[in-house]
């Protein structure tokens, strides 16, 4: 084996190791992003549900009844 070949083999092994580490880190990073998105999606769904509840709070019969009472009291 000439010294060039020897250097080439070492370089290839070195590059393979570097790319393995890089790919592993990328996988971890992507997984973390994916989990983050999942949590964010759940939170957004929650926020939408909370908005729905807020709306429900304005239009449910008990609130309407109270609003009507308040209006009547103001008029009196």
């Amino acid at each position: 084996m000439t010294s060039y070949r020897y250097i080439f083999v070492v370089l290839v092994i070195f590059l393979v190791l570097i790319s393995t580490v890089y790919l592993r880190r990328s996988e971890n990073r992507e997984f973390y992003k994916f989990r983050n998105s999942q949590v964010k999606e759940a939170r957004l769904k929650q926020q939408l549900w909370q908005k729905q509840l807020q709306l429900e709070n304005y239009i449910n019969p008990a609130s309407v009844s109270n609003a009507v009472k308040e209006q009547t009291n103001k008029r009196d």
Partner: peptide
């Protein structure tokens, strides 16, 4: 379909 009880975070 109006809410009588519901959970939120």
């Amino acid at each position: 379909g109006r809410i009588l009880a519901a959970s939120y975070v």
